[in-house]
Each structure stands twice: as structure tokens, then as C-alpha cells.
Design a binder for these strands. Sequence first.
DNA 1: AGTTAACCGAGACGGTACGTCACGTCTTTTT
DNA 2: AAAAAGACGTGACGTACCGTCTCGGTTAACT
Lengths: 202, 202, 202, 202
Amino acid sequence: MTGPQNTPDPSRRNEQSRAAILTAAAELVAELGIGKLTIEKIAARAGVGKQTIYRWWPSKGAVVFDAFLAASEDPSGSLALPDTGDLGEDLRTVLRLTALELADPAFDRTGRALTAEVLTDPALLRDYRERLLDPLLTVTRERLRTAREAGQLRADADLDLAVELLYGPLYYRWLHGLGPLDPGYADQVVAAVLGALGPARD
Amino acid sequence: MTGPQNTPDPSRRNEQSRAAILTAAAELVAELGIGKLTIEKIAARAGVGKQTIYRWWPSKGAVVFDAFLAASEDPSGSLALPDTGDLGEDLRTVLRLTALELADPAFDRTGRALTAEVLTDPALLRDYRERLLDPLLTVTRERLRTAREAGQLRADADLDLAVELLYGPLYYRWLHGLGPLDPGYADQVVAAVLGALGPARD
Amino acid sequence: MTGPQNTPDPSRRNEQSRAAILTAAAELVAELGIGKLTIEKIAARAGVGKQTIYRWWPSKGAVVFDAFLAASEDPSGSLALPDTGDLGEDLRTVLRLTALELADPAFDRTGRALTAEVLTDPALLRDYRERLLDPLLTVTRERLRTAREAGQLRADADLDLAVELLYGPLYYRWLHGLGPLDPGYADQVVAAVLGALGPARD
Amino acid sequence: MTGPQNTPDPSRRNEQSRAAILTAAAELVAELGIGKLTIEKIAARAGVGKQTIYRWWPSKGAVVFDAFLAASEDPSGSLALPDTGDLGEDLRTVLRLTALELADPAFDRTGRALTAEVLTDPALLRDYRERLLDPLLTVTRERLRTAREAGQLRADADLDLAVELLYGPLYYRWLHGLGPLDPGYADQVVAAVLGALGPARD
DNA sequence: AGTTAACCGAGACGGTACGTCACGTCTTTTT
DNA sequence: AAAAAGACGTGACGTACCGTCTCGGTTAACT
């Protein structure tokens, strides 16, 4: 699923095997971390031949990534930010949730492993962008655009910059373990961004 | 060097071997990336026994990290931000340099590999914090503190937040390949931070 | 063909596939030897599904053996030794031809591979005996019997022994690479057998 | 041990591992035959890494052959034929023993497997010749030479031929399962050879 | 003529073994 | 005592084939 590189005819694919592999991968990455995870262990746990994994995925990282996606991808297909009319409130809601997820110890190991994998493998990064990151950034940007049109942001506010100012610091703090990722921090970041890009105050 | 845990008597250490190992590691990580790098290849290239590496370093990542440090650590021992009196100018200088380094394709592979390693190995992260990141954040914070005392930032500006607002977006953009890391972007970030935390405009 | 054990209805068999398989097997065994030969390669070269091979043959050796037979089996169905009336001359003719074939480098690899297969697989050995070896030994024995009745061999000559004295040494020399398999050697063997079992000389 | 091709420094070899490997190979070939025997099973049974096998032997056949040799090679270093002065008696002794060994069902499987391996692998055949077959043929030839000098064989008897006339038929009968390998058969062969190459009877 | 059953090509599947690589430990010899 | 060298047990790699199993598609033979 990760890449449409040169996989065989997908219509002949065994759906049970695919699901068993993703389940096994998800369990094992939580148990062992990605470093100790091996294709052989995934195959064994899934009750599947190794070749069945190699046939459909190009790398260990791709399997794990798919397993992660299978669990987290919004099945409804649509990702949406709240829009109460109050930009600050909406952004606080989103960033608080983001902070909460990053702060979850259960997420930490998997998240770091996946991040490391994604940063290091250009193909995975592309996939990650397309399937998770870009959609998130886009809906955020759209929420900001609505706000800008409503005069809640400066008319010349750069929305790409705004988005990175929102998520970048959280991510930075999380990866480097610089401090607590609590709702207060999320609020601080939102306040700073609004202070920087909100309507002129004089 | 990375882990001062329970290494043997360092006074008997062979300095030539140490240097050869770090040089070989640096070369190999540039040639192969960290994934294809192995202790055996480092030993072979350095003309050194494997045990000599295992004796002094706890992991492959630690060797690479040391090799990276040996090349980049400020030998003068002191890291400093410029202080021209104009905070904006000084921050632009620093962030432009940071952006320049991140944008350097030669740095990209090594930087990503190292980042992945560091994020994934708590011991390495600690080391990275102590020897590279914290000093950088500290000098930045100190420059901001000076500025705050000079009235160039709000009196209630949170300096930890400020630092993360500065570096976070660059890092975020770099890791995810979201856009160009050019001087203009650095300037935008600085402007936003000053807009958010600068003295009240009314 | 090899095993009439429990194969499906032979009337529905696709003759083109059968021929393509035997041809492919013969080519591949010459190119690769029997060790590197695989059912999958035969199927691929013959443009045939693997199941079509498994349906009709019990083992790789059986396919190869059939391929060999298809090429060498006397299609006239009758194998005969010359009978000029002079036993020595007739035996020399046969053994010289046998030596010639064994000495042919093109035969060497295939012959050895097939021999190894046959010696090792009792079912194949049975087949080999029935379809190739026994007929040969029988006609040889019959020629000797005629000669014995004509007084050219001792009346008490053991014909089974005689046959093995004729073929055994050639085979032994060939398999072990003990010396040249030339007409002279064939003649020597014949002379020895006639010396041993010919009519008493006193 | 089989081939001095490009193995590492033998002085550093672990003798315990070597012995364990040969023992395991011998046991397994008797239990499973050579076809079902695998390097992995040998390694597992011997409690040894696969690499330790690959380091010292070039092929599965070579290991098995070494195992066979280790068990059967005359440790005294000298192989000898009896010499009672009566050639017929001495040859009967040897051929009867040979027939006995070949007829032993316990030897049959291993012997056939080994023979197949040896016939098929030129390097193994060379080894087999040098270490087992040639010494046997040589001592036999020497016994015949002594007899020829004593006038028990024709002066012009070809000793290479004689040797092949002795062993060839036994081997032929054994490999093809043509008949019983009993002392009587051995005696018949000896009688024939003496009849052919013994002193002229008129 | 329509149905049915077998063969056929293709190739995915759960497995086993391959031969290689690197791990981290160890032993031997040299410096 | 540290170091170069490298054999060792371990275990994972990614590949090759095994023999079995669907899956459509043809191709007889039998209603």
C-alpha cells in the first residue's frame, strides 16, 4: 500500500494476510520498538511467509508505517478543524489535542520510531506527506484562510508560515524533550501566533 | 566519549586509533548513510580491531555522533550570539545561518541520519542536548534576555517559548521538506516572533 | 510417463505442454546441471504452469529422466546386438560404441547427473532398470547365450556374470575418471572376458 | 579439510566445533539421507553457527564426505592387502569384504548418497580419488604386480585393467541392484579375472 | 446446444533453506 | 593493558524454490 512501485496484481492479494501482517507489525513495534523489530518476527506472528511481506512492501519501515496508518487514518476520509467562528478557540482546541497526543507515553516510542523512519527514507516521507501531514496542514491552512477573510488575521498574513509557527514549536519541544507538552503550552503558542499575525493592534 | 558510563582507563587510550575511528565513521556515514554503516566497516576502514570500538563506545550511533561532534563542536569552547544591540538583526543573522546549514544538501543526509538516531536513543538524546542543543538554546535565550531587559521584548515574554518559536518552524520545515529554507524564511520567522513578543504596539 | 501411480486421466493430457516440458528440461539440465535445475525454471521455459508438471511427474528427477528417455529411447522399440557369428567382433562393436558415448563430453554432465539421480531414488532406479538397463543387459545376454550354444563360450559360463564383467569396468572407469575410454580399452575388456569364459584352451 | 581452496588460517580453528560438525553430519545423513540433510540442521545439531561450516567447507557434500572419511579413513595411515602368496585367496578375501560392505543395508543409503555427490562434483571426485580410491587401487595393483613377478599372472597382464575387472562388476551390480553381493559372487569375479589374466593354461 | 468437469496458464501463498552479513563476545598474538 | 586480527554462536537479511492452492480461460465429453 505504501508505494505503487512494482507490486504484483493487487486483485489477487490475500486480504487476510494483509490484515494479519499489519496487526502483527503494530503489536510488535509497540512491544519491541522499531530497532528490534524484524520482518521475520512480523511474518511469524502473522502466520505468513516472509515473501508475502516482501511482495507487497518495500521495507520494514513501510510495513510499520502502513500499520500505523491503518490504525490512525481517518476512515471517513475527511479531516476537519472545528470552526466556531473564534479562531483562537479553534486553534487552541487543535493544538491542545496535538500536545496531548505527543505527550502520551504510549505514543512516544512508536511516534519517535516512525518519525525516525520517515525522516530517513525519502519514499516514506513522501507517503507520510501525502497521506497524513499535507491533509492536516491543508485543513489548518483553510481554517486560517477563513479567519483571514473574516479579518481575524492580517490581510497579508502568510498562511504557510502561520501553520509552521503553530506546529513547529510543539514538534520541536516533543522531539527534543525540551519541556512539558500541556494545554498551557498549546495556548501560549496560539497566543504568540495570533499576536504575530493577528490584526494590527493600533 | 559519548558515554562516560563504565569505560576503561582513558589514560591508556590510543589517540591515533580514536582519531582513525572517528574519521572512518564520518567518511562512511557520508558514503553509505547510517543504515548501511556497520561497526565492522568502520573497524576495517580505520585499520582497527572491532573490540577497540566496543571498548570505548556503547553503540554505532554514539560513534557517529562523536564523529559529527569532532567535526562541528566549537573548539574554542564558547558559543556566542552576536549582540549588535539590534535584536532583530542579530536573530536574523543566526536564523539565516541555521537555515543555510539545513539547506545544504551535503548536510542533509548526515543531519537526518543523526537526528533519527538521536530521537530514537534516549542516551544519545541526552548527550545531544548537553553538548549541542542546550548550549545553543542557552545563548539564544541569554541574547533574548538582554533584549528583554533593554525593552526590546515585552517584560512578560516567555524566553523558552521564544526560543522554540524561533527554531521550531525551521526545523519542522526542514525535516518535512515543506518549503525552501532561505534567508527570507528566516526573516519571516524572526519578524513573527518579534511581532508576537515585541513591545506592545499600542 | 515415469510413474503410472495415480496420475489423472491421460486422455485429456495436453501433448504440446508435455513436449515443451521435456524439451525445456533437456535444455536446462544441459545448461545448468541437475543441481541448479528447478521445476519453476522448467515451467517458465516451457511456458507452462507449475501444476502441469506436478500433475504428471512425481519429482524433478522423473522429469529429467523422461526428457532423457524421450531423446534416447529406441523408437523402433527393439534393441539388438549385431550377430555376425563372431562373438568377439560383435562385443567389440558394442563396447566400443558404449565407450564412445561415455567419453563424449556432451554426455558427461547429463549422464552423471542422471546417474546420481537414479542411484539415489529407488523409484527412478526401478524405472531406469525396466526401460533402459534391463533391455540392454537382456539382449547382451541373449547374444552370449547364442555364442555359448555355438561353443564360443564355455558351457558353464555364467551369463549374468559375463554381462557385468563387460559393462562393469567401463562404467567404473567412466564414473571415477580412471582412464581413457577408447576403443582399445573396450577391446581389452572383451579380450579379458573371452579369455575368462571362452572355451577351455587346453 | 576437503579442499585447501581458500579457507582461513587453520591454526585458529576450533577443534571442538569441527568434531561436532562431522559427528552431526554423520548422524543426520544416516537419519535423513543426503537429500533432506541441510547445512542448517547440521549447524543446529552441532551447536554451531552456519558460518563456521561455510568457513571451512565449500559445500554440503564436502562436509558429508569429510564426515564419512573421518569415520572410515584408516587412521594408521597404511592400507594393505593380505599377501599369503596365493593371489586367488588374497583377492577373494578382499572382494568378499568389499561385497559384504556394499551389501550392508546400513551402508547402502549413505554409500549411494555419497557416490551420487562425488560423481556430480568434480572437486569432491578429486578428493575421493586422492584419499580413498587411489590408495585402494594402488595397493591392489601392487599385490597384482607381486603376483605377476611370481608368475601367477601373465607377464603381459595389464594391471590397471585387472583392477577395474575386479572392482567394476561389484560396483556395477551394487549400484544397479542387479543381484546379490555375496561371497560366491566375489569368488566368481576373482575366478574370471584369474582365468583371463592368469598364466597361459596350455 | 448447453452444461460440466478436467486441464491449463498464471502466480499468490505458507514454508524451508539458502548463503551472506553484522552483531557482540571471545581468544590469540603483538606492541 | 591496550590493540589488531579474526573465529565464534547467534540471528536477521533478502532470495529462491518447494508443493499447494485459488483464479479465470479454454477444451473436451456427456447429457
